[in-house]
Amino acid sequence: MTVAEVVERLELEALAAGELKATVAGGYCSDLLSDVLAHAQSGDMWITHQRHMNVVAVAKLKEVAAVILVRGAAPSAEMTGRARSEGVTILRSSASAFQVAGRLYQLLEG
């Protein structure tokens, strides 16, 4: 499944669009940056409440397929600007992390 398909199925809003044809391998849900650095896998969708510049750096380092901000969190213009220049996809959902993770799990593993 591609990022674009997940965007459509989970009704996500694209705040910064990188490679939307990238394949989604899995998901990781965490607000602890070091935990993501240690355990997220390349191609995962990273579900988080964090919305600052370092999220873009971590997303890029781990080569995640996209970042999903939950509960309608609004990132700064600097963060989305950096994400665009780095080619990192930032998506947003109005749903909770629990709901987004559950739906993504169903899509990928169900």
């Binding site: 940056l33 070091s34 650095l37 600052h52 370092n54």
Partner: peptide, 9 residues
């Protein structure tokens, strides 16, 4: 609060 300090660095 920014997601640092997990003691995993």
């Amino acid at each position: 609060e920014l997601g640092f300090g997990a003691g995993m660095g």
